[in-house]
């Protein structure tokens, strides 16, 4: 159970400012999605949240504590865990080793074994491939591994960057059903997606990000009915 609040988040690469003061909130136990076109600043937002880049200005509050500018491993230790863009599995390591890395901060071997068992029953296909290098998995299986690896950290809040990227529609459906299930188990989720229709279907709240600004926000149902959103993102 966890709450994330972002106030005036501003990020820049060199002199180019790419986020101009973002405000959004991810309430406890909800799925919030951030949708927007390529280059709108979605991935930059996530990189700032997980400590991979230092914001130029603004506040990031996780359960009320300031985490802006903190090192990535400290943010993971606070229970906010990222499933990065493009899966980023450790291709040369086995599926089992990838899962083990997710639980790096968990010092208790029994707890690690329990989480591993939970991840494998959630993703039975990973169990069949435990000894194989992660690079040999299909795109969908790699995404399951990336999510399973993040769950090994015992997250309170999960950040997902484009989990549908490059996957077949049936696989996307499967992945999103899993995310909806995680929410029912009490995990808070911030989902970043280009596939707006899939994201809006499972989200509670949605923010539309355009050229580094929040252009629109509201309940997922409202946003999905907004004519501008329909025209730009839902292919209406």
């Amino acid at each position: 159970m966890s709450t994330l609040e972002v106030h005036g988040l501003t990020c820049a690469y060199g002199r180019t400012e790419v986020l101009h003061g973002l405000d959004f909130a991810v309430p406890d136990g909800r799925i919030v999605c951030l949708i927007g076109a390529n280059g709108a600043g979605k991935t930059t937002t996530l990189r700032a949240l997980s400590g991979q880049i230092r914001p130029r200005a603004g506040r990031i509050l996780l359960d009320g504590a300031e985490i802006a500018g903190m090192a990535p491993h400290r943010i993971v230790a606070r229970g906010m865990v990222q499933v990065p863009e493009g899966r980023q599995v450790f291709a040369s390591l086995s599926v089992d080793e990838n899962l083990a890395l997710g639980a790096w901060l968990c010092a208790d071997a029994h707890e690690r074994a329990r989480r591993r068992e939970a991840a494998l029953s959630r993703f039975p296909r990973l169990r069949e491939r435990l000894r194989q290098p992660a690079g040999a998995l299909s795109g969908g299986e790699q995404q399951m591994l990336a999510i399973g690896r993040a769950l090994m950290a015992g997250p309170k809040l999960l950040l997902l960057d484009e989990p549908s990227m490059g996957l077949a529609p049936l696989v996307v459906e499967e992945i999103f059903a899993i995310l909806a299930g995680l929410r029912r188990e009490g995990i808070t989720i911030l989902l970043i997606e280009q596939n707006a229709s899939a994201a809006l279907e499972i989200a509670d709240t949605a923010y539309v990000i355009e050229t580094g600004r929040i252009a629109l926000s509201g309940s997922a149902a409202e946003v999905a009915r907004n004519p501008a959103v329909v025209a730009a993102y839902l292919g209406g």
Partner: peptide
């Protein structure tokens, strides 16, 4: 060892290793 696993992970993807909670 787990330490060796973390070293091998860091060799492959240092940024992703940090996302695992590894103090790279």
């Amino acid at each position: 060892t787990r330490l060796g696993l973390a070293i091998r992970a860091m060799a492959e993807r240092p940024d992703t290793a940090a996302l695992m909670g590894i103090a790279t």
